[in-house]
Each structure stands twice: as structure tokens, then as C-alpha cells.
């Protein structure tokens, strides 16, 4: 599904290398988690994959279902099936949440040569999916993320994911700023989307999100590289002993 090979990335504005050779493959149907200390390059990886400005790929490759991701515009990556749930979802005053969702859904369908969703079908679908995430009609009407609490913003991300039905979902610290109940709700939303055709990459500092979204594979990232890969037990080890032991071990 997602193949990353020897990915090297620098900041455009300053000569600073963030990713120093990341190798990672996420198979369809699997949930991979990336854990790591602050500044290890986890968020940079998610931004580079989604096509944000400000980063320069100096070496390596990344592809989605065999298609070269790094050559595509952000909207093309989305239409190809990539989705990034933002750590800090952006507020867009003046753009209604519904308008935004519908524009996005139909733009992707159009890009894939599919028919646009009718207003009625769209409404039906969005209402059902919003209900499961406890997103009320008022939140759908309000401008995108404006005045939303931290938990509401994250649920709104998952609603977008549910509507867009991407093949590859990247969740960037989706647990940050969430209380336990909100985290459960978000995790349920994610778990509902798990199926054989879809891959997940869950980026997190803490093991607790992984109690709710059970990973198949856990990677530890440090200093711009994946330094250790294992099963779910690796997350527990981090939780108990911190990163220091693991980092010392691979150093």
C-alpha cells in the first residue's frame, strides 16, 4: 500500500536535515504505529507524504499503490487515496463544514472519473456518519473547525476520513489534546474504517491510543530514522521504560 524507501528530507528555509533515510512499508489491511520522542521527525514524515510546502526531498522515494507520491500535488495525493488527520486541524472562517466536505468528496470523485454525489445522497451519508461520531447538526453547519473544542476538531477529522474513504490513513498525534472519552470515540471511528483494503499509519507519543486502536506493527523513530520495529509489545515497552533504553540499545 504505502512504500517509503530511504527517504531523506530537509527544511527548505534552512539547511537542516529532518529525515535521514526512512524505510517503511504499510500493507493493506494493517495498522502500523510510529512512536518516538519529540523532534524525531514523525510529523515531518506525515507532512512530506501529504505534500505540504517547505520541505525538500533530497533522496529516496515514496509511493502509494505503486504510484509515485512525491511527484503529485497535495490534491492528487488525496484523490489517489492518501489522507492525513492533522495534529492541529485548521480553522477556516467563512467556509461551512458541509460545503467543505461536499466540495472535497466531489472533487475526489471527479479526479477519479467517478460521478459526483447528489446533494441528497451526500446529506444522507454525512448525517449517518456524523451521528456515529456524535457530531451534531450544528457542528456540520458551522465554519470548518471554528470554535470547535480540541475533541470536536479531532472528531471532525475522522468524519472527513469516513466520508472520503481513503485507502491509506495517516493519523498525526490524533490523541493529543483528547480526554479519555473523546479518545475512545475517535478510536471507535477509526476502528470502524479498518478493513482489508485499507492501511493505517498511526503517529503517537503515547501507548494509550494504541490500547484503543490495536496496531499490527510498531516502529520507533528517532533522529530521522526508524530505529526499531516490532509487534504491539514494543509500545508497552516504551510505556514502561521510556525511549531511553531503546535508543541506547540501537545507538
Amino acid at each position: 500500500m504505502l512504500d517509503i524507501k530511504n527517504l531523506h528530507v530537509s527544511l527548505e528555509e534552512e539547511d537542516k536535515q529532518i529525515l535521514k533515510g526512512v524505510d517503511l512499508t504499510v500493507e493493506a489491511g494493517k495498522v502500523h504505529a510510529i512512536m518516538g520522542p519529540n523532534g524525531s521527525g514523525k510529523s515531518t514524515l506525515s507532512y512530506v507524504l501529504s505534500g505540504r510546502d517547505g520541505y525538500e526531498v533530497t533522496n529516496g522515494a515514496a509511493s502509494l499503490k505503486g504510484e509515485d507520491l512525491l511527484d503529485m500535488e497535495p490534491e492528487e495525493r488525496a484523490a489517489a487515496g492518501l489522507f492525513l488527520a492533522f495534529q492541529y486541524p485548521v480553522e477556516i472562517p467563512g467556509v461551512g463544514n458541509m460545503t467543505f466536505l461536499r466540495t472535497a468528496v466531489n472533487a475526489q470523485r471527479k479526479a477519479r472519473g467517478e460521478e459526483e454525489l447528489s446533494a441528497a445522497d451526500f446529506l444522507k451519508e454525512v448525517r449517518a456518519k456524523a451521528k456515529a461520531l456524535k457530531i451534531d447538526a450544528d457542528m456540520l453547519k458551522r465554519p470548518v473547525n471554528v470554535g470547535f473544542s480540541g475533541g470536536e476538531k479531532k472528531r471532525n477529522e475522522i468524519l472527513q476520513m469516513a466520508m472520503l474513504e481513503p485507502a491509506m490513513c495517516i493519523l498525526d498525534e490524533t490523541d493529543s489534546g483528547l480526554d479519555v472519552d473523546a479518545m475512545k470515540l475517535v478510536a471507535e471511528g477509526v476502528n470502524a474504517l479498518r478493513d482489508e483494503g485499507r492501511g493505517f499509519l498511526v503517529i503517537t507519543h503515547y501507548q494509550r491510543l494504541l490500547d484503543h486502536i490495536k496496531p499490527d506493527v510498531v516502529h520507533i523513530m528517532a533522529n530521522g530514522r526508524i530505529v526499531k520495529t516490532g509487534g504491539p509489545e514494543l509500545a508497552l515497552e516504551v510505556e514502561q521504560n521510556g525511549y531511553a533504553d531503546i535508543l541506547a540499545e540501537v545507538a
Binding site: P74, E75, L84, I92, A104, A111, L164
Partner: peptide
Amino acid sequence: FYLRSRGVPADIATDLL
């Protein structure tokens, strides 16, 4: 960028804003 990351083409994203 947020709009584009959801599949909205750059020019349409500008129009929305």
C-alpha cells in the same frame, strides 16, 4: 493546504477562501 489535502484542487481552494 488543508483544503488541498482533502482533495480540493488549488484554484477551487482559493475560490472557497
